[in-house]
Amino acid sequence: MKEEQIEVSATTVEQAIEKAEEQLGVSRDQFEVTVIREANSEIIGTGNEETVIKVELLATQENNTQVAIETLETLLRLMEIPSTVEVSGNEARISLDIEGDDLGILIGKHGQTLDCLQYIVRLIVSQRVKTWVPLNIDVCGYRKRRYDSLDEMAWRLAEQVKIRKHSIILDPMPPAERRIIHLALTDHPDVITHSTGEGMDRRVVISFRRS
């Protein structure tokens, strides 16, 4: 596991920074340097006098992605699930996709197992980089397909509401899925959406917009 903070010693500060770049595998602009002890230039070469710097990785998107990949790979290895982790998309959010054979076990009923895995990864990553990192985890594109079909379903149901002029109550869904329905219909001219119920039983209601 890559450390977020290391100490490096060398003869000069510049050399120590170069050494840190190599050890961490990142460039100078991705960490912060604090000089702990600077070698006295007059006695260089005369003894053990060395320059010591402390290097702290900055919470950049690139570093966060790296930490997220390592965390997820470690969890999958410990769970003994043969798979590979790929970065999908590079928007403001970190999106990781787990690829492998027969990974339905990682998705679970209504994606509940996947939600748990994502929650644990978010928790560990946030703890390691000391800031909340928005990240999404998918398994073989499951979420993407599910979200696309929810979007399509939202429009289909909205048409029914428009024709029959009565409300439709959807099945209970997790927050991320309800959000997809709300977003899909937010600009729909004929329907409005809201949620009702508590916890695991919370459902979206699509109603006719009376003008």
């Binding site: 969890l75 410990l78 769970m79 003994e80 699930i81 076990i105 990682l106 679970g108 509940q112 197992t113 748990c116 895995l117 929650y119 644990i120 928790l123």
Partner: peptide, 18 residues
């Protein structure tokens, strides 16, 4: 109990496979 529940879920996946 969300963290404990999430850990139990991941344990169950591993246990089921074994």
């Amino acid at each position: 109990g969300r963290v404990a529940e999430a850990m139990r879920t991941l344990l169950r996946v591993k246990a089921a496979r074994n």
